[in-house]
Design a protein around this nucleic acid. Structure first.
Length: 464
RNA sequence: UCCUCAGUAGCUCAAUGGCAGAGCGACCGGCUGUUAACCGGUAGGUUGCAGGUUCGAGUCCUGCCUGGGGAGCCA
């Protein structure tokens, strides 16, 4: 028995032509006529399916096969016939069809249009649809592409801890990690919960960022990155927020903000090229059915330079525009979504870096610029999705960092090790965070983050 | 958390306060090359939940639940 993945057939149809092979997969559609029928069989290895042709005189179980429903799992052995003139390049002339798993008539996924909302309710079956088959194969490819981008450039991958005691960074609301009895926790003399008796002997939470740990490694390996899950307990109800998501966080030493942006731009372009090259069928599908013109837009991006504009210039540009904004545009205020969209979609219509934000609206670890008013931060805004990257050059001057921490009411003793990194061979360094799902949304045109995560976790929703 | 829209057959949606319907899917039958096949037929309903107004509520009112879109927070 010569078991073959459908992807192999598409890559090497000539080789398999006229040979007897066996494929395993699930029925997408089954159409029978009087003495023959067609099954569209998909095995998940390729966006496309293989068409199985079966005939009454060839199959002992013909009558059973005609009744097989959508979703049934089959093993089919037969001869691969090349059909260059037909709508598909080849088809499988069945000699033996074995039912491995039946799928009764109440199988929820039918060969028809379903809404994304309905498919979310059957998230365990939706990878068997065209859209999600494409999305999750691309997610897998993109994940690999991230690693190969950094590995090709000599970056060291570190697995930052998932459980941490850092909650000083203020990147977001945290999920507490505890083994204490919630009904009857140990108390201190002041009747507050005594976390000293908790598993780690202190308050701990799920990580909101691997950045601080990555900085420590950057000051040993120079170029490093983390790629792992991140948890934010924010009560965010939008199409681009999840409680559990994956983040890519490179950190580079002996480097400044400009090096940081160059890296980010190279990375985004690499990822786009990778998908256009490795997932042409999926990208064509997204471009045709999900987001018209996606492919052309991405191809343009690969060859265009990303725009770079300072926050102050951005404010000026927004103030000069004739656009009516709901929120005021004023130096010192953060850019609102409507402002970001206007910049990335109307002014530039391609990815744009906005740099050098007022220090008051950015994190404590960002390096103070010489003007004493702004920090060396950068956000990458892309049309349609908004912010997919946030990064900065880090404050490497210990005295400045201590001052900044004081302004944010962060106690030095809570981050003593982070300060020590400045004390022992501290050097200028920079890094950024790329939301993996946001990148995926941008690259596939899928507009809801819940549709690019296998089993999404969002406020009030932790199904499956 | 705030604003907004929606919830009717398995799915997608109709139905002026007056008999709850269609398309798709499912099932049965037909068809010698189908392509989300086509043609004919059959079955399928606590109109999200609880209350209220009314002779009469899918439709109007109140509360709740669930989902979508937008905002804030952010990646």
């Amino acid at each position: 028995m010569n078991k073959v993945a459908v992807s192999q057939l598409y890559m090497n149809a000539e080789f398999y032509g006229d040979k007897t092979i066996t494929v395993n997969g699930w029925i997408r559609t089954n159409r029978d006529q009087k003495s023959f029928g067609f099954i569209t069989l998909n095995d998940g290895s390729h966006f496309n399916s293989v068409q199985v042709v079966y005939e009454k005189e060839m199959l002992a179980n013909y009558d059973q096969v005609t009744k097989l429903g959508v979703g049934s799992a089959l093993e089919v052995t037969g001869r691969l016939a090349l059909t260059p003139g037909a709508r598909q390049p080849f088809e499988l002339k069945a000699e033996k069809v074995t039912l491995e798993g039946d799928s009764p008539a109440d199988y929820p996924i039918q060969p028809k249009r379903h809404t994304r909302e309905f498919l979310r309710e059957v998230a365990y079956l939706r990878p068997r649809t065209n859209l999600f088959s494409a999305v999750f194969r691309v997610r897998s490819l993109l994940s690999f592409a991230v690693h190969s981008f950094f590995q090709e450039r000599g970056f060291v991958c570190l697995h930052a801890p998932i459980i941490t005691a850092n909650d000083a960074e203020g990147a977001g609301e945290i999920f507490r990690v505890t083994t204490l009895d919630p009904i009857n926790p140990p108390l201190t003399e002041n009747d507050t919960v005594n976390y000293g008796e908790d598993f780690f002997g202190r308050k701990t939470n799920l990580t909101v960022s691997g950045q601080l740990e990555a900085e420590a490694f950057a000051l040993a390996f120079k170029d490093v990155y983390t790629f792992g899950p991140t948890f934010r307990a924010e009560n965010s109800n939008t199409a681009r927020h999840a409680a559990e998501f994956w983040m890519i966080e490179p950190e580079i030493a002996f480097a400044d903000l400009s090096d940081n942006m160059n890296l980010a731009e190279d990375m985004v372009k690499y990822l786009v090229n990778y998908l256009l090259d490795k997932a042409p069928a999926e990208m064509a599908f997204f471009s045709q059915y999900v987001d018209k013109g996606l492919r052309e837009r991405l191809e343009k991006i690969v060859n265009a330079e990303f725009s770079r504009i300072s926050y102050s210039e951005a404010i000026e540009s927004l103030q000069k525009s004739k656009e009516e904004f709901e929120y005021p545009v004023e130096w010192g205020r953060d850019l609102q979504t409507e402002h970001e969209r206007y910049l990335s979609e109307k002014v530039f219509n391609k990815p744009v870096f906005v740099t050098d934000y007022p220090k008051e609206i950015k994190a404590f670890y960002m390096r103070l610029n010489d003007d004493q008013k702004t920090v060396a931060a950068m956000d990458l805004l892309v049309p349609g999705v908004g912010e997919i990257i946030g990064g900065s050059q880090r404050e490497e001057r210990a005295n400045m960092l201590i001052k900044r921490m004081a302004e944010f009411k962060i106690r030095p003793e809570d981050l003593d090790w982070y300060l020590d990194l400045r004390k022992y061979g501290g050097v200028r360094h920079a890094g950024f965070g790329l939301g993996f799902e946001r990148a995926l949304m941008y690259l596939t045109g899928v507009s809801n983050i819940r549709d690019v995560i296998p089993f999404p976790r969002t406020v009030n929703s932790c199904e499956f």
